[in-house]
């Protein structure tokens, strides 16, 4: 196909957008491993800043991993059964509930966090433990798990599959564990990756919910950006990238694998 000026104009535009998004990422990675960013990369490369971050902020990294895994467990336990129930029951009540569940995503995290603080701030042990942050993260990520599973469940003919299983003698719970769960694996996996990624990066709520003893990675990042030299902020950002990139790659791969599968089914 011959490509005209319009093609190249659009390509140039797209490349520009790409540069806008990627340039600062590269700059920050460079800054994180440069001896002195002000004088440029001629000053040489070093892992000094990365080690400094590791020494100073190690705890935030572990806390973030812990919270995101706990958040995943929470959304699995709460979200997957709920998604199944919502998929099976299409009535006014279930639609209202579906609508409500999405609210913590629509309502700014700041408002949700304030609401949690004014309600449970007095519960000393709860307020100061990391589970307070966890509650906020589950609220925020639950809709993503529910929607991801729900999307898969509404794409398959769940009703007939269940009737088929029932005709062979499967009880409600046997159907749920043998037929429903295995057939929404894809949705659960995609939802899980999304939940972990979002929990790892959540800041809007966490900034208000955290205490000096429960700092998560993004909270530590904000700290570092505000008070430390650019190189340390960059090195810290680099660490954050290293943690979420595998998750993002997995998410993208999952999306492509699913697309490819749909194509195969069409043929």
């Amino acid at each position: 196909m011959k490509r005209g000026a319009a093609f190249y104009a659009q390509l140039a535009f797209t490349l520009l957008v790409c540069a806008f998004l990627i340039a600062p990422v590269i700059l920050s990675i460079l800054a994180g491993v440069t001896v002195n960013y002000q004088s440029g990369i001629q000053s040489g490369f070093t892992l000094r800043w990365v080690f400094a971050v590791w020494d100073g902020y190690r705890d935030t990294i572990f806390l973030s991993i812990g919270i995101s895994l706990a958040c995943l467990a929470g959304t699995l336990i709460l979200g997957v059964p709920a998604a199944y129930a919502l998929a099976k029951r299409q009535n006014a009540f279930s639609r209202a509930l579906e609508e409500l569940l999405v609210m913590p995503v629509a309502v700014p995290g700041l408002a949700t966090a304030l609401a949690l603080i004014v309600t449970y701030g007095g519960a000393g042990g709860f307020r100061t433990s990391w589970s307070f942050i966890l509650v906020g993260h589950i609220l925020f990520t639950l809709p993503f798990m529910v929607r991801s599973v729900l999307a898969v469940l509404s794409a398959i003919d769940l009703k007939t599959l269940e009737e088929g299983a029932a005709s062979l003698g499967a009880s409600f719970w046997q159907r749920f564990f043998h037929i429903v769960l295995p057939n929404c694996r894809g949705g659960i996996l995609a939802g899980s990756l999304m939940v972990v990624t979002l929990s790892m990066g959540e800041f809007n709520m966490t900034w208000l919910l955290h205490t000096p003893l429960t700092k998560t990675l993004p909270v530590g990042l904000a700290d570092a950006y505000a008070s430390l030299r650019l190189e340390i902020g960059s090195a810290y950002t680099l660490v954050f990238f290293l943690m979420i990139v595998p998750l993002l790659v997995a998410l993208q791969w999952l999306g492509q694998a699913r697309q490819a599968k749909f194509v195969a089914e069409d043929e």
Partner: peptide, 20 residues
């Protein structure tokens, strides 16, 4: 009795075979 207790075999138009 619901279907799982009636011990009838059923064949569906869309087959309802379990993809998993």
């Amino acid at each position: 009795l619901s279907i799982e207790k009636r011990n009838v075999g059923m064949v569906f138009q869309s087959y309802a075979l379990f993809p998993n």
